[in-house]
Simulated scan of single mutants.
Amino acid sequence: MFAAVPLLALPVLIYNLIALTLPGAFMSAEAHARTTETLFTIHMTSRVDWAISLSDLLLAASLVVLFVELLKSTTSRKIAIINHSLSLVLFIGCLIEFLLAPAFATSTFFLITVMVLLDVLAGFIVTIVAARRDVDFGDN
């Protein structure tokens, strides 16, 4: 049953925890400032410092999770339909948060929302293509 849970709920949950720990919670506009603060820098061979923020780490982890979700969408088990449906519910929740709560009106959360949308679209498209392939149109 754990396979039915969309893994992209993890980055959304982490962003929600970051936003909820701010004073004013969902109505705080400080989420952008908190997520873009430099956590550490990496000295590149080009003699430039690469500043990495929480936002960068969250987006990188979200891309890895999106890759895993796309691999999961290729299965044609019955539980995949539940996963696609829950991903759609997650996308609707992300869209509502993005549009209505100031703490979620950031580029980071927008990109996470786009990743959830891509998961939904890829899941349904892969399922439709697999179902079409499974239908046999023989010349009997």
Score class of each variant (00 low, 15 high):
44 M>D: 14
112 I>L: 11
45 T>C: 04
49 D>S: 14
73 S>Y: 09
68 V>K: 07
35 T>P: 01
109 F>T: 05
138 G>E: 09
70 L>M: 01
36 T>Y: 10
52 I>F: 15
77 R>W: 12
72 K>E: 02
10 L>R: 04
139 D>M: 07
111 L>Y: 05
69 E>M: 03
130 A>L: 12
64 V>M: 06
54 L>N: 03
66 L>W: 00
90 L>K: 02
93 G>P: 00
51 A>Q: 12
103 A>V: 08
98 F>W: 11
45 T>P: 13
36 T>D: 14
101 A>M: 07
125 I>N: 04
13 L>V: 09
51 A>H: 14
124 F>N: 02
79 I>Q: 04
126 V>W: 11
45 T>S: 12
16 N>L: 04
116 V>T: 01
55 S>Y: 00
16 N>A: 11
103 A>N: 05
134 D>N: 11
136 D>F: 07
57 L>S: 05
13 L>Q: 08
130 A>F: 11
32 H>I: 09
110 F>A: 12
105 A>D: 09
92 I>V: 11
74 T>K: 15
100 L>I: 05
132 R>N: 10
4 A>H: 09
107 S>P: 04
133 R>Y: 13
75 T>A: 08
32 H>P: 01
22 L>Y: 00
87 S>R: 03
56 D>A: 15
89 V>H: 01
80 A>T: 09
114 V>M: 14
50 W>V: 12
67 F>D: 06
32 H>E: 14
34 R>G: 02
98 F>C: 02
17 L>S: 08
120 V>E: 01
20 L>R: 11
30 E>S: 03
70 L>N: 00
38 T>N: 13
39 L>K: 11
127 T>Q: 13
50 W>Y: 13
58 L>Y: 09
113 T>V: 09
56 D>T: 14
25 A>E: 05
36 T>M: 10
92 I>R: 04
26 F>Q: 02
38 T>K: 15
99 L>T: 05
14 I>K: 01
26 F>T: 02
78 K>N: 07
